[in-house]
Simulated assay, not measured.
Amino acid sequence: MSKQHLFALIMWSATLAATAAVADVQTPAGAGARTSTAQSEAEEAAIRRVLSEFRTTRVPLSRAMEIAERLHDGSKTADISFEIDGPPVYRVRTIRNEHVWENAIDANTGSITGKEMTSSLKELDREDLAKILALKWIKQELSDAVQVAEKAAAGSALAGGLIRQDGKLNFVIVVASGDHLKEVLLEPPKVGKQDTSHH
């Protein structure tokens, strides 16, 4: 389950066109083992491809988050993923108040590529909206979670965001460590409603 979730995170924005179709296939119960073996091989190949591209990039994920957040004063990163659907980029979603911005940051130069997509919270699906609203009640920011995960997994982060698992919201950070991708789950501390202090 962890591996499927990890792979789904890497495929977050349909990044690996060649293998995304395989990754999205739901294997019916009782289906032959051959289908799952083919899926596993496709996942392994996609992970190797992601790691190979990621190792050559010059801009770390934390820097891409800073670049995206500077585009809109006071915004913070909701989620970020490394994509190799062409030149390697980080796809970053930042939020502030009712606004959501999505930008692609070139993973080698740190420049903004493509057109910025802007939406409002009202346009998000229910799950995304719940995660983004939850960010307002969390003391820790995604950038903090990335630092903790990189230390814990002894590697470099290439994706991160919030997920709901067993009714709890956790940060999930995918870290490239050696020849492997490691998934680090962190439960963020919540801000009490009475807590009016700012950090």
Rank of each mutant, 00 (worst) to 15 (best):
K3S: 10
H5F: 15
H5D: 07
A8K: 09
L9W: 02
I10W: 06
M11E: 14
W12H: 13
S13A: 08
A14S: 11
L16H: 10
A17C: 07
A20S: 14
A21H: 03
V22G: 01
A23K: 06
D24V: 14
D24I: 13
V25M: 14
V25N: 14
T27K: 13
A29S: 15
A31N: 05
R34C: 13
S36P: 12
A38I: 05
E41P: 15
E41L: 07
E41F: 14
E43H: 05
A45Q: 08
A45T: 11
A46C: 09
A46N: 06
F54L: 08
F54M: 11
P60F: 09
R63M: 01
A64K: 00
A64P: 04
I67G: 03
I67Q: 00
A68T: 02
R70I: 12
H72G: 09
G74E: 09
S75T: 03
S75L: 07
T77I: 07
T77N: 04
D79Q: 04
F82W: 13
E83S: 02
I84R: 09
D85R: 04
D85I: 07
P87S: 15
V89P: 03
V89I: 10
V92Q: 03
R93S: 02
R96L: 04
N97I: 14
E98V: 09
E98M: 14
V100L: 08
W101D: 12
A104N: 06
D106E: 02
A107R: 02
N108M: 04
T113E: 02
G114W: 08
K115G: 08
T118D: 10
S119R: 07
L121F: 11
D128Q: 09
D128I: 13
K131I: 13
I132K: 08
L133T: 11
A134P: 05
A134M: 07
W137V: 15
I138W: 04
I138Y: 00
I138S: 05
K139M: 12
K139L: 13
Q140R: 13
A145V: 03
A145R: 04
A149T: 00
A149F: 04
A152S: 08
A153R: 00
A157L: 08
L158I: 15
G161R: 01
G161E: 09
L162I: 01
I163Q: 03
G167T: 12
V172D: 06
I173E: 00
V175H: 06
A176N: 01
S177R: 02
S177H: 14
D179G: 05
K182M: 13
K182Y: 00
K182P: 07
E183G: 02
L185G: 05
L186N: 02
L186R: 02
E187S: 11
P188N: 01
K190C: 14
V191R: 01
V191M: 06
G192K: 05
T196Q: 03
T196F: 06
S197Y: 01
H199E: 05
